[in-house]
Design a protein around this nucleic acid. Structure first.
Length: 562
RNA sequence: GCGCCCGUAGCUCAGUUGGAUAGAGCAUCGACCUUCUAAGUCGAGGGCCACUGGUUCGAAUCCAGUCGGGCGCACCA
């Protein structure tokens, strides 16, 4: 509906500008159209006349009148009014809403998808937890948000890869190996021989036991069999990484998240990418030596401080492999790369971008893009939950999934703007009542399925064609309101994808479900009037389709019954 | 001290990128099941959009400052 109105206004705008060719502004304002909040203002409203008033030097209402005179007639538009300071309000004809139902049924799973990214490649890097312990709630938020971003890009036509990056070789991994080794030798925390800052969680015991038992672990296309020798630290390190990656994979699988690519920090060294990057940066003229260290002048590129690349002891700071990693992403041909991370890492953004700019390899200034999520607080029984027995010091993603289920956990973690802090109420997430927005939406879907079952049991029949043929019978305000809500889905997907805000989908689905429940409660579907019945069932089935498509974007299931 | 994010109903949060009288859910109060799932619907009350200035036809939204919360400011990752 909106694109149609947009083009009508465009035609009118061109004609009006022709009338005032002398006064035509250098920069034309974009045509803005938005759904109204108040039915008195029609269905869609445009502020075009107000935006144009100043550049053309005409009164907004005069301009609005001129635009109306040039507006081509349309079967979708019942009435157009000028209101307030110069708003142009469109009142749509029922036919405009009815046609939405037909469109949804015809496009099916494709309804809401667009081709903006067709032929282009995108990558979303997310979670990227180091294999030193179970995934925590923050990783869960990253997993939910990152996966939804990938789904949104896919729905927008992008060829999208999901990538998981992790450090499998640094000091933390060494600490992990020492912790496992200590457990292998039955050393407890605080006892002599326990490594300084060792990992104390119970899961370290499990890793040690599996290692001593000679277990085999498969993770990220690799398999590792434990050497079972408590003195072989390298073997312990390799096994522990595989074990914990395997654990993380189990959690992600239970969460419905899969990755296409795993990238190991160690490979940046073994493939020489780190030294290549340093050499290239030195050649860029943006480096200098000071106090025995090699620095990059990131302040040339909007960082607030220059950064050390190579320490005086000859080793590299973490920021060098970070740049080398992003060079790899660029060389792999991703036009668009989105990094989903916790907000506590926001300091790296300026550095990575600065490093890429200094290399002068054609990377655009705002590349890569970042989506940062804020902290998650977990509440249960009115109190904050801070500790998981398994991890020792934080609430794990597995805890949440076990408590609240996959669907509720995913929905809750993605339903809020990523850059606001989130309170995850476990009691609410697990409630099977109307308090719980996940069930509210899923229930709408299940209700339609139930109606279709009833329809069969009563010996009635229905199909897309008979439904589409009857949509002209949809006249009731609640019927048209539901269709109007469905019409907004494609635009919502576009906005969510372009602004990288998956919470808009969750928000939208709640409104769609509300429109459905309102319709369902007021109008009987399985009635004797065959044509009206066909029309209403068509409306319900179309609503089910949009609910399903939207839930699919969130990775939440659409159950047939509840 | 510097940088980033946030501040909207008692609580949890939206607010379509500057639009008309600021919305939803929960909680509170009231109404609706002999009818397709009441996991639902309808109604009522509840607000100095943290504060102060500015920008303009118009500001919760943009700018500056103040206050409050979170995070980051290593030759750690």
């Amino acid at each position: 509906m909106k694109p149609q109105l947009h083009s009508l206004l465009g035609t009118a705008l061109t004609a009006v500008l022709a009338e005032h060719s002398g006064a035509a502004p250098a920069v034309l304002p974009a045509i803005q159209l938005e759904p109204t909040k108040d039915p008195r203002f029609g269905d869609f409203s445009s502020n075009l006349a107000m935006l144009l008033a100043k550049p053309l030097g005409l009164a907004p209402r005069k301009l609005a009148e001129a635009l109306l005179r040039q507006l081509p007639p349309s079967a979708s538009v019942a009435k157009v009014e000028i209101a307030g300071p110069g708003f142009i309000n469109f009142f749509l004809a029922p036919a405009a809403f009815q046609s939405v139902v037909a469109e949804v049924l015809q496009r099916g799973d494709g309804y809401g998808r667009n081709a903006h990214g067709a032929g282009k490649r995108a990558m979303v890097e997310f979670v990227s937890a180091n294999p030193t312990g179970p995934l925590h709630v923050g990783h869960g938020r990253g997993a939910a948000v990152g996966d939804c971003l990938a789904r949104l890009l896919e729905a927008s036509g992008w060829d999208t890869a999901r990538e998981f990056y992790y450090n499998d070789a640094g000091a933390q991994i060494n600490n992990l190996a020492l912790s496992v080794q200590a457990r292998c030798k039955a050393v407890e925390p605080e006892q002599p021989g326990w490594p300084e800052n060792g990992y104390r969680g119970d899961y370290i015991r499990d890793v040690a036991a599996a290692y001593l038992a000679g277990a085999s672990m498969a993770a990220d296309d690799r398999a590792v069999t434990a050497a079972a020798d408590p003195d072989d630290l390298d073997a312990i390190r390799e096994f522990a990484v595989a074990y914990l990656r395997h654990e993380q994979d189990l959690d992600l699988k239970a969460f419905g998240v899969h990755f296409d690519l795993y990238y190991l920090e160690s490979s940046l060294y073994s493939e020489g990418r780190v030294t290549q990057t340093v050499t290239a940066l030195e050649g860029s003229g943006h480096t200098f030596e000071q106090d025995g260290a090699l620095w990059l002048k990131t302040t040339d590129y909007a960082d607030d401080k220059d950064r050390v690349m190579r320490k005086s002891d000859g080793s590299f700071t973490y920021f060098v492999p970070d740049v080398a990693y992003h060079v790899s992403k660029w060389q792999r041909g991703f036009q668009r790369v989105i990094n989903e991370q916790g907000a506590d890492h926001h300091g790296t953004i300026a550095r990575v971008r600065a490093g890429l700019q200094a290399l002068d390899i054609g990377v655009p200034q705002g590349w890569p893009e970042y989506v940062l999520h804020q902290m998650v607080t977990v509440m249960k029984g009115g109190e904050e939950v801070k500790i998981s027995k398994r991890a020792g010091s934080y609430v794990t993603l597995r805890d949440l999934i076990e408590e609240a289920g996959r669907d509720a956990t995913r929905f809750f973690l993605v339903a809020r703007k990523a850059d606001s802090q989130l309170v995850f109420d476990i009691d609410l997430a697990r409630a099977q009542t109307n308090d719980n927005p996940v069930y509210y939406i899923q229930y709408a879907h299940a209700r339609v399925c139930s109606v279709l079952r009833q329809l069969g049991e009563r010996g009635m029949s229905w199909d897309d064609d008979s439904g589409i043929a009857a949509v002209g019978r949809l006249q009731e305000p609640l019927e048209l309101a539901l269709a109007a809500q469905m019409a907004r889905f494609p635009e919502t997907v576009e906005i969510a994808a372009s602004t990288l805000e998956p919470h808009l989908i969750a928000q939208y689905l709640r409104e769609l479900a509300a429109a459905f429940h309102g319709f369902y409660n007021s109008h009987q579907l399985l009635i004797d009037d065959v044509e009206l019945r066909n029309a209403r069932v068509a409306l319900a089935v179309a609503a089910r389709q949009v609910l399903r498509n939207g839930l699919g974007l969130l990775g939440v299931s659409a159950p047939e019954q509840m």
